[in-house]
Amino acid sequence: MAEDTNALLEIEDLRVAFRTPTGVVEAVRGVSLAVARGERVGIVGESGSGKSMTGRSVLGLIRPPGEMRAARLSFDGQDLRSLPERRMRRLRGRRLAMILQDPTYSLNPVMRVGRQITEAFRTADPSLSRRAARDRALAALARVRIPRHDVARVYDAWPHELSGGMGQRVMIAMMVALGPDLLIADEPTSALDVTVQMQVLAILDDLVRETGMGLMFISHDLNLVASFCDRVVVMYAGRVMETCAAADLHAARHPYTRGLLAALPSIRGSHGDLPVLARDPGWLEGAPA
């Protein structure tokens, strides 16, 4: 996959380590993956698997004491490893965007929603007039399927006046209106109720279909990733255990993936004890299945 020339994002042998007083912690240990245009790639794993660090690496957000190395890290043909911070900053927001789990922490609590969106637009394009920025912001909000009669209200609202689902739509509206080629969504719906989660996913789904945006969807939820993404990368302890088509996840071959799937309670499953995942130390080092 990493040799795929159509890939929008190519990662090869990515390593992230943190130097701590008690030793070096290796969060990501040789991850290779690729995301094509219009492709939804899910990265699943439990906490500590390195899935979020992989996403942050792409945006150049690993800060000291963290250190990142990769044999290859390229976005649309540009080598991100050697890009100066100034040019990286220009990419972030415009062509590479990220949304996080909880919109409450991503929105500035003391600035009205509309002002935050227009500010993002005018930073990306300083020639944009106030009025044009406002028009674009309203259009962006309408695009994430905020009902027409609510758009003006959301624009004038303070972040605390929004529900979690609406806050996440605002974040998506802001990121997506800048027209990124690649969106990295780190647990974008985990803080949301299931019905709202469906709505936010439908919006992301629309965007991928309509604009050909590539999506890296980071999640701990196997069922969700299997049903939403095109391809799934399963991570454990900083390494890729298995990559497969999302539709085939339930027929996964790696014992780790199978163990995770078996540990999930299900509505129609048996009422007996759930199979507990037995971790094989070999998964830490062995070659991916």
Partner: peptide
């Protein structure tokens, strides 16, 4: 199913 839930969802 998601498309169904999008219509007339509460905003606030």
């Amino acid at each position: 199913v998601a498309a169904e839930t999008l219509d007339g969802s509460p905003g606030f």
